[in-house]
Write a protein that binds this DNA or RNA. Structure first.
Lengths: 240, 240
DNA sequence: CGCGGTTTCAAACACGCGTTTCAATCAAGT
DNA sequence: ACTTGATTGAAACGCGTGTTTGAAACCGCG
């Protein structure tokens, strides 16, 4: 049957003016995000979500209509939250492009892997990436595309216009792919690598160093890997 | 209650000597693989699987015990099948290392993306990679590790021993990551790229060309991308 | 206070899930 | 042909799912 979703019309007990940590709608979104991220759409149950949120089971119907729409809203909520948490880096005029690339890669890895445990928001977005649903388009346009375009512009600056747009995008995807693997297939990567190296897989710094050196070398903006031993991304200016 | 799984003991109607396309155990494994690949473990239902396999619902209990064990067996079955379908490339003595790299990357992309539709076996394995269950260890040791080691050895040959093992593995992961992205995040990549370029994302050849050139350049075994215009991986031997 | 709206709650609903049951059917061994 | 154990089949079971219900609690306002 057709039925409205929480639609206040003026008088009565207004919910929209409440402490956001108390607001059941907000609590549902957060609990749902965590649960969906961990167990997936089918694996998560609205009962568990409501239990975790400390609200009654009927609340999801009241605020969102059904599980499906709760899921979509929780994805949007997660990516907006994440956007607030980790803003794009911003460089002063004249920052060299290789420095920007290094920062960008480090930033992206930090966003993906987190500094401690990977944030549930990213797990949720990852699910959307791997198996897009209705929530995906917004995710791409609001979240991924800006970062992607920024990366392309950095690479363009790095090559000083010597690469066509098409090629720049391919290079950007090469950079993203290198980072993406550690997040999406982290467990398997950990099994392929000797035990001693396993910890370094969760350290954005070291990974960023490698990926940046690898990419710069490929673009001819740094020495090839076999020679580049202890290269720093931005060497001291020679004193002469 | 405790109950045995299809355990023939000598006399009676023996099933093990039957046309493999008729054998219900085999049919269940294939149908289950397809269904799990498409819908995930929770999303797939035993009923649908049995319907697709054309067997009675009790068969999964009879042959595998329960859904969980059917899932694990279907993953193993899928990766063994895939292993038979796409063998590792084998080169004659003296094949140059850059040629090997190019072949390896092309082979891996072909395995991941398929030539037409991506094979369901890979979708199933992808799920295991992203969220490992008990079936994952076997997958890694039997399927991924051999390919990984082969890639490392090619890269070692390419660098003529100038890179340490640790670094070689990082480079190998860079190569794999570049390929992996197109498979795991293909839909999102398609949304980030202009419509006209979208088709090329499903063409292993072109992707392999880019990834190989990118990697060779990074290793100093090829010209940097901005200069490498129409490089061929293995140029004609100069006639002088 | 008492009205009108919003929000919460416990309980129940219908349904589809994985699994089990048990009799019927089959094919080899004797 | 009869026995025996392996295999199949239709039906049912118990449970957990997402969702709905209808009344109670709540709050701002006249």
């Amino acid at each position: 049957m057709i039925q409205r979703i929480s639609q206040k019309t003026g008088t009565g007990r207004e919910a929209s003016t409440r402490d956001p940590v108390e607001d059941p709608r907000e609590r549902l979104l957060r609990a749902a995000g965590r649960e969906f991220a961990e167990r997936g759409y089918e694996g998560a149950t609205v009962r568990d979500i409501c239990l975790a949120a400390g609200v009654n089971g009927a609340a999801v119907n009241y605020y969102f209509g059904d599980k499906q729409r709760l899921y979509i809203e929780s994805v949007k909520h997660a990516h907006q939250e994440r956007l607030r948490q980790v803003p794009e880096p911003d460089w002063p005029e004249g920052t060299p492009a290789n420095r920007k690339l290094r920062d960008f890669v480090g930033n992206m890895l930090e966003r993906m892997l987190g500094l401690g445990q990977p944030p549930w928001q990213v797990s949720l977005m990852l699910r959307e990436v791997l198996q897009p649903t209705d929530a995906c388009r917004e995710l791409v346009e609001d979240y991924f595309r800006p970062h992607f375009e920024l990366l392309v512009s950095i690479l363009d600056e790095l090559c000083q216009g010597r690469l066509a747009e098409t090629e720049l995008r391919r290079v950007a995807l090469s950079v993203i792919g290198q980072c993406f693997l550690y997040r999406a297939a982290g467990d398997v990567v950990g099994m392929l690598v000797p035990a001693g190296e396993r910890e370094s897989l969760h350290m954005p710094r070291q990974l960023a160093d490698h990926i940046t050196r690898f990419t710069l070398a490929a673009l001819g903006a740094g020495r090839p890997l076999p020679a580049a031993g202890q290269d720093t991304i931005v060497p001291e200016a020679p004193s002469a």
